[in-house]
Amino acid sequence: MVWAGAALAASPALVTPVWLRAHLHDPGLVVLEIYDTSAQAPDFAAGHVPGAAFTGFVNDGWRTTVNGVPAMPSPAAIAKVIGGFGIGPDSQVVLVTGGTARGDFSATTRIFWGLRVEGIANVAILNGGQVAWAASGAPVALGAPKAPRPAAFTPQPAPGLTATLADVRADLTSHTAILVDARPPAQFEGLSVSPVSRRRARCLAPSTCPSRPLKPPMAKACCPRPSSARRWPRPVCRPLAPPSPSATPACWARSIGSCCARCSVTRA
């Protein structure tokens, strides 16, 4: 679930290869090349931004689990991870997606958000990642990852970038934020269930915006937020029954009593 009630203010979210090349030797710049797992270190060794540090998202402590569900690490744990990559409170951080797999980019955006949450204001993503860097004719370094020089870092959590369960429940009636469910459409609709979920369910207020690119017929499952006339009067979260084999996005939405302006389906 994405909480979109607060704006992210600081450095631009995206920088170009031209920008990074011009600032590559600036004091305080930290370039972090991100892969999904540490097993992809050979890909880093085959070509990376000069001076970049390597990280495997799954293995390097950027997230933990609570009751089997992915969660943010404790302040002490994430401080050790961030400082271990040479990132201090005044660093300018540029995140480079190392590979081309969907997991690599997801890891990059997750680390971007995590750094902002912990108080790193000047963090950006290199638009196009390592592929765009190499294609631009910029220099590419070879060789295995080197350990960064650690920096002292103390988290300074930025307000408004995370939400509690109570916040989400309250918004189902107040509508002060935009709730976006970033799971795949099949999980949003109850057609499948994540291994970490206990049941097929969702809160009925959010829109769905899948984390992977929307392509027909997937786009048919992306339902816009209901208009004010269709807002539900109270928080509702209900389990979803398995659909029939012939269910379409429209009739399945009708069967679970959701509201989709695109399908003209109203809550039962």
Rank of each mutant, 00 (worst) to 15 (best):
T64G: 05
F57R: 06
F153L: 11
D104Y: 01
I87S: 12
A107H: 11
F57M: 12
G137W: 06
M72R: 15
V66K: 07
V69C: 03
T108A: 14
G99Q: 00
A53Y: 00
S91T: 11
V96F: 01
I111T: 12
N127V: 00
G98Q: 00
A124M: 12
P148K: 02
A138C: 05
F105W: 12
P150D: 12
N122L: 04
V117R: 14
S91W: 03
V117H: 15
E118D: 14
T100W: 03
P89L: 10
A101G: 13
A151E: 09
A135N: 11
L115S: 07
W113C: 02
I125Y: 09
P75L: 11
L95T: 06
A79W: 09
R110E: 11
N122G: 07
V140S: 09
I82G: 10
R149T: 14
M72K: 05
S74A: 15
V96A: 00
F112E: 07
T65F: 02
A121E: 15
G68Q: 04
W113R: 09
P150W: 01
G86C: 08
R149W: 00
G114E: 13
T97S: 10
Q92M: 08
G143M: 06
A124L: 01
K80E: 14
A141H: 03
V140W: 01
A138I: 07
I87T: 10
M72D: 14
A147R: 15
P89K: 13
R149D: 10
V123T: 09
Q92L: 12
V94R: 07
V66Q: 13
N59G: 10
A53H: 13
P70F: 10
F85Q: 11
P148D: 04
V81S: 08
A147Q: 11
A152Q: 15
S106H: 12
K80V: 10
P73K: 03
A135P: 02
P75E: 09
D104L: 06
V96Y: 02
A124S: 15
G119C: 04
R110I: 08
G119K: 04
F153I: 08
F85C: 14
A71E: 05
A134I: 01
F105T: 08
S136R: 08
I111Y: 10
D104M: 02
P73G: 10
W133Y: 04
A132F: 02
R149A: 13
G98W: 01
A151D: 06
G128E: 02
T109A: 14
D60T: 08
A147K: 13
A101R: 11
I120K: 04
G99R: 01
S136V: 05
P73C: 11
G61M: 07
P75N: 09
G137P: 02
A107W: 05
G56W: 03
T64K: 04
R102H: 08
P145C: 09
P139E: 05
P73S: 11
T109Q: 13
F85T: 07
A152T: 15
F153R: 03
I111P: 07
L115H: 03
S91A: 15
W62E: 02
N122H: 15
G68D: 05
P139G: 06
A121N: 14
T64F: 06
A151S: 14
I87R: 09
G128L: 00
V117D: 13
F85D: 06
S136T: 08
D104G: 10
F85A: 12
F105I: 10
I82V: 15
F54K: 01
D90C: 05
V58N: 11
R63M: 13
A134G: 08
P150I: 09
I82A: 13
L115N: 05
G114Y: 07
